[in-house]
C-alpha cells in the first residue's frame, strides 16, 4: 500500500483501529516481561534495590528525547510537505512526551533521594531534562491557547524545530554551568561496561515503553482526528443556521 494512502485520515482511523488492540497487547506483554526481568535483576552492591528505578528512569529518559525528535520530524512534515496528519501526530505526541519526561524527572529525584539526601540537585542531566519538560509544557500551552488547529500547528512546528536545534546548545550550556560550579559527583550508571543481567531487562523495558508510546500515540491521534471532525461538524452546523452573512 502506498504511503500516501495513510495520509487520508479516514484510512488512518480504520488501520489504526485494527492495529491498536494488538499494539496494546504487545505493550502489556513486553511490560510484564520487562518488570519480571527487572525484578529479578541483581541489586547494585552500592545502591541496593534503588537501582531498580533505573529500569523505568532510563527508558523514559530515552523516550523523552526520542519523542521530541519524532515531533521535529512531524514538524518538518507540517511545514515542508504539508502532510495532513503531521500536525495531528505532533499534537498527540506532546502530552505523552511531557508525561514520559515527568516520569523521568520524578524517578530521577526519587532515585537521587538516598544518594544525594535530597529530592533534587541541580545535576546537569536532570536539569537538562527539566528544561526539556518546560519546553514540552510550552508547546502544550501553545496548542491550548489557539483554537484553530492549522494555525496552532504551524506555530507549534516552528517552535518544535527551534527547540530541536536549541536542545544540544542547552545541554552543552547546562553541562558547562554545572561543572563550573561543582565537579560532577553523580554516579554514572550508563556506560558500555553495563552487565548483561541489567542490560537485558533494560532493553526489554525500553521496548515496552516504546510500545506503550506507540499505542498511546495512535489512540491520541485518533482522538485528535475525531475532535477536529467534531469541530468541523459544529462549524457546518453553525453555517446551516439562519443569519449567515
Amino acid at each position: 500500500m502506498p504511503l500516501i494512502d495513510l495520509a487520508n485520515p479516514t484510512r488512518f482511523l480504520k488501520l489504526s483501529g485494527l492495529l491498536l488492540p494488538w499494539l496494546a497487547g504487545a505493550a502489556t506483554i513486553a511490560l510484564a516481561v520487562g518488570l519480571y526481568l527487572a525484578g529479578n535483576a541483581p541489586d547494585d552492591y552500592q545502591q541496593g534495590a534503588t537501582v531498580k528505578i533505573m529500569f523505568i528512569h532510563v527508558p523514559s529518559a530515552w523516550l523523552a528525547m526520542a519523542i521530541w525528535g519524532m515531533m521535529s520530524l512531524a514538524a518538518l512534515g507540517t511545514l515542508v510537505w504539508r502532510h495532513p496528519l503531521a500536525d495531528v501526530a505532533a499534537k498527540a505526541a506532546t502530552p505523552i512526551g511531557a508525561a514520559f519526561t515527568l516520569i523521568c524527572l520524578l524517578t530521577g529525584s526519587l532515585w537521587g533521594r538516598p544518594m544525594w539526601g535530597t529530592y533534587w540537585v541541580w545535576d546537569a542531566r536532570l536539569t537538562s531534562v527539566l528544561i526539556l519538560f518546560l519546553m514540552y509544557l510550552g508547546v502544550m500551552a501553545l496548542w491550548r491557547s489557539v483554537d484553530d488547529p492549522s494555525r496552532a500547528g504551524r506555530a507549534a512546528a516552528i517552535l518544535t524545530l527551534v527547540g530541536a536545534i536549541n536542545l544540544p546548545i542547552i545541554k552543552f550550556s547546562v553541562d558547562w554551568w554545572n561543572t563550573l560550579h561543582q565537579p560532577a559527583s553523580v554516579v554514572r550508571i550508563a556506560g558500555p561496561a553495563i552487565h548483561p543481567t541489567i542490560l537485558v531487562p533494560l532493553l526489554v523495558m525500553a521496548l515496552a515503553f516504546v510500545l506503550i508510546f506507540v499505542t498511546l500515540h495512535l489512540a491520541a491521534m485518533r482522538n485528535e482526528i475525531l475532535r477536529r471532525r467534531v469541530r468541523t461538524l459544529m462549524m457546518i452546523e453553525a453555517q446551516a443556521a439562519p443569519g449567515r452573512g
Binding site: T118, V121, W122, T127, I131, W177, N178, H181, Q182
Partner: peptide, 11 residues
C-alpha cells in the same frame, strides 16, 4: 528554574 542558572546550583 532560571534562578539557579543565575545564582549557581549551590544547594
Amino acid at each position: 528554574v532560571l534562578a539557579p542558572f543565575a545564582i549557581g546550583p549551590d544547594l
